[in-house]
Design a binder for these strands. Structure first.
Lengths: 242, 242
DNA sequence: AGCGTTTTGATAGAAATATAACAAGAGTGT
DNA sequence: ACACTCTTGTTATATTTCTATCAAAACGCT
């Protein structure tokens, strides 16, 4: 069975995968049917398509139901993270090899990278890799392994092995907890392992944290504070031991 | 300088990275300004934001100008690829380890995977990994290395080494060219290397191609046709040597 | 062909979004 | 404080999108 309707759905799906969004008018033209029919097709297939204004979008894009409950906290955290990363620009130079840690802070740093900066980037997080892959002048090296959804990162000996063959000029690290006496900690042990190895391979280690992390303690230790060449918060370079 | 406007832009950016789209009303509420101001902010920052219906979306999402010039060819290719993948479902069973090749066909296969199928997936392409990572019941193993934008895939000895430690039940492979006498070929040598290794580790090798690939020849050879346990096209299992 | 069902297109009215113009307010520098 | 500029909010209007309804067309079945 291959009804007309199914054919339209299929064609719609194709068109959408090309243009990421499609105006109903265009969709109607493409499918050779009326706008009304397009509307009906889309609303009958909410698992695949969604509406947004007068446009058709892939299902995932359509607006989440939560009209407004962005916690002020999460919101300001994000702003803080961007501020933190703004200070990191000073440590990035042309033609260097940079290690990007996983976590929610580092993606902001990648977004802030100028389009024209030419560098080799090393990462082990899907989030970060996606963004780095879009930069035209970045040579991307990814450490693979087993995927961990919680941090969108990979773990495994092959990644650690790859690090052994790399010279890293600067490593940008994040931490879920930072304490002047107990050092930098994160939530997962596999992350700590990669962080440690990356730091040992790097000429310069820069920790990027928003201030909310200071004083916190997480299960996986990966470095004492002395090992960082700089600690950047939203206020710029900061001395944690103080 | 950190004007009110810049703060809003920043906050908008944060809100957008949480919800992928944002209705103007909600944005106005979040930022504590009028809808008119939100509109002005968005239209003043077309590099970062776009409009879609009454909604704000990340810049990349907003509709491309081309109202309709989807080549019939490209269009039917996409449909063909989905059709090809539809036939592959028969080869996927619970709790097996599946290798996913890179290329433009395989992402369709991932999209077609049922949510509830539990399997270990091995891949070496960013496209495919992103999609696999979204599947709740998939344990993802990614082969890392140096990134190749042309195929969104990675190459390197660490990935090959990882394959050595895996047992693969089924490998789904793609090819840019298929010829009954000269075998399966692809555009890049680093891909061929991975494909060969993956095939050698797999109990079953399934080639997924749309029929347009038949008779074509590309620079990098990776397998003769006899080595495939099945060749699937949009017509289902096909005998290429015929 | 004839009948009932389903699908499609057209229309009109309601709701939402977009644009423009103007007034009120905030910020800057003298 | 004053004049000036820039930013923001409000209102009104035009345009677009949405929903519901009904008639026409296509389809399936006997």
């Amino acid at each position: 069975m291959n009804t007309r309707k199914e054919q339209r759905i299929s064609a719609l799906s194709d068109a959408l995968s090309q243009h990421r969004v499609l105006h109903i008018k265009n969709a109607a033209q493409i499918l050779g049917v009326s706008e009304m029919t397009v509307r009906r097709d889309v609303s009958a297939n909410t698992e695949r398509f969604g509406f947004l204004g007068g446009h058709i979008v892939p299902a995932a894009e359509s607006e989440t139901d939560n009209p407004y409950e962005i916690s002020k906290a999460a919101d300001s955290h994000a702003a803080a993270k961007r501020d933190v990363c703004a200070h990191a620009a000073d440590y990035i130079h042309h033609d260097e090899t940079i290690f990007f840690d996983c976590g929610t802070t580092l993606p902001y740093l990648v977004d802030l990278l100028p389009e024209d900066v030419h560098l080799t980037a090393v990462c082990y997080s899907l989030n970060v890799a996606e963004r780095l892959a879009r930069k035209p002048n970045v040579r991307l090296v990814m450490l693979g392994g087993l995927y961990h959804p919680a941090s969108a990162s990979f773990s495994g000996s092959s990644g650690l092995g790859t690090l052994d063959s790399l010279v890293i000029n600067v490593a940008f690290l994040s931490a879920a907890g930072v304490d002047s006496r107990r050092g930098a900690t994160c939530a997962h042990f596999h992350e700590a392992e990669i962080k440690r190895k990356a730091m040992s391979r790097a000429q310069k280690n820069v920790l990027l944290i928003d201030k909310s992390k200071i004083g916190k303690l997480k299960p996986a230790f990966f470095s004492d504070m002395q090992s960082f060449d700089a600690v950047l918060t939203e206020d710029g370079p900061t001395d944690i031991s103080a």
